[in-house]
Amino acid sequence: MEETTFTKRQVLRKSAISFAIFILVGFMVYFGYQWVKRQPKIAGAPRPLRESLNFNEQVSSRLFDSSRLVKEYPVSAAEKKVRFNGSDGLRDSVNSGTWRLRVVRSAGDTLQISLSELKALPKKEIVFDFKCIEGWSQVTHWGGVPMKTFIDHYRLGPESQLKYMGLQTPDKGYYVGIDMPSALHPQTLLCYEMNGRALPLREGFPVRLIIPVKYGIKHLKRIGTMFFSNEKPPDFWAERGYDYYAGH
């Protein structure tokens, strides 16, 4: 290794400079961290962290192919005991006869679609690894109308040109916003069946969203209203510090 000779003073000076920079940068890191934590919160996350989540979203939506398919499994691989998590938006009673999916095309122009009308559309089944943002996952089996089929059938083409789809439960107790490419993903379903039977109440009877390219927080149970927007629709968990995109 390279050797050099210096006076004692010179060596001391070199060390002092290095240590001064080391300590200075150390303080900067510490105060930088404290600064981030002190920043005003935007939807539950300090501004710089919220901005970095949004930056990641931009990177994802620019670099990635949003039509990539999620891996599917045989029906036999599906879990019979489906894990239940979260009942926000499900506290009212619901009646499948009177329930309607309200699709807001524009102000004062709302479609009302019944369960039997939905069931009359072509059905698709999917068995995939459902992933919760908490970190667990489960292979589960769902059936319903592909969102794309639904949009085409009800001639919602112009609305689907907007950037986002918003969904709410009938009581507005739970709500999500979905970027349109994910909403129109071929595996996204307006789902009315689990394991080949009608959805259980706690799984979102009569109709829920199944969107395999997103974490479970986006799979809204018991859809009441659907609308379209260029602004990000309100999102229950994104208001509580989570990533808005929450996609895979």
Binding site: G44, L49, L53, R240, Y242
Partner: peptide
Amino acid sequence: RLAEGMSWHFAMMW
């Protein structure tokens, strides 16, 4: 503190 953890994790990962 899951949400907080994720927001730090996905910022510092870069």
